[in-house]
């Protein structure tokens, strides 16, 4: 289970962006989180990916409560969650070729020997041709770069995936291709998915269950009224 319990988070303690959000993703389940722009979805996604420490509330990952976030989180917990962000341009280190981009988590966790094999396998899965792999981020399109970012998220075989508006910048065919890659991965491994987005049609078709932001943060609406 990936559980978010009454999470309050933000960038200034006095003005939390997310108030009392509660959300549960069961293993193998795909949950879509719908919400308007600027409501705090991405912040919640960052908390779920252990990248942002909540001001209060907690995250429970596979039954183990998470006490530390970002670098302080145990590596096994951090790498159990694969993250794909909205903007591929910003989420790719501009200095790395796509091969190194995809291989970076393997190198960071000391699995250098499996780099050629895993990169080739994933490039094939996400549909990147070998000549694209030698290019740097500014030499490929947004769609191609997002494919590489998805490959990077899958390279450590995470048990959970957090896709924060993964397809918002992409055209329909790339969206369909990337969603299929995620679904194939989930069928093969039984990974759970938290897909954040604002596209109701997409999330309804993609996910087993779609929840709206207002039901995730019941007190938030009162606070705004």
């Amino acid at each position: 289970m990936l559980e978010l319990r009454e999470v309050t988070a933000g960038y200034d303690r006095r003005v939390p962006v997310v108030r009392n959000a509660t959300l549960t993703v069961a293993p193998g389940e795909a949950v879509g989180l719908l919400g308007p722009s600027g409501c705090g979805k991405s912040t919640l996604a960052r908390v779920a990916a252990l990248l942002h420490r909540p001001d209060s509330g907690n995250v429970v990952l596979d039954g183990a409560p998470v006490h530390r976030y970002r670098h302080r989180a145990p590596r096994a917990q951090r790498t159990a969650i694969g993250v794909v962000f909205q903007q591929p341009r910003l989420s790719a280190d501009p200095r790395l070729r796509l091969t190194d981009l995809i291989a970076e988590p393997l190198r960071a966790t000391g699995r250098r020997s499996s780099v050629p094999e895993r990169v080739a396998e994933l490039a094939d899965t996400v549909g990147l041709t070998p000549d694209l792999l030698t290019r740097r981020p500014h030499e490929v399109s947004d769609g191609q770069l997002q494919r590489a970012c998805l490959a990077r998220a899958l390279v450590l075989r995470p048990r959970w995936l957090v896709c924060d508006e993964m397809t918002a910048m992409l055209d329909a065919s790339t969206t369909a291709a990337l969603v299929r890659v995620v679904e194939d991965y989930r069928t093969a491994t039984g990974a759970g998915l938290l897909a954040v987005g604002h596209d109701r049609t997409l999330l309804n078709r993609w996910c087993d269950r779609t929840v709206h932001w207002d039901t995730v943060t019941p007190t938030a609406t009162e606070a705004f009224v």
Binding site: R78, T79, S91, A92, A153
Partner: peptide
Amino acid sequence: SRPHIDAAVSGGASRWRVTVRHLLPG
């Protein structure tokens, strides 16, 4: 604060690796 650093952290990079491989070259 850029997402690519978030991605590196999520990929299991240590603080040292993030600094030396991603921050310092920048």
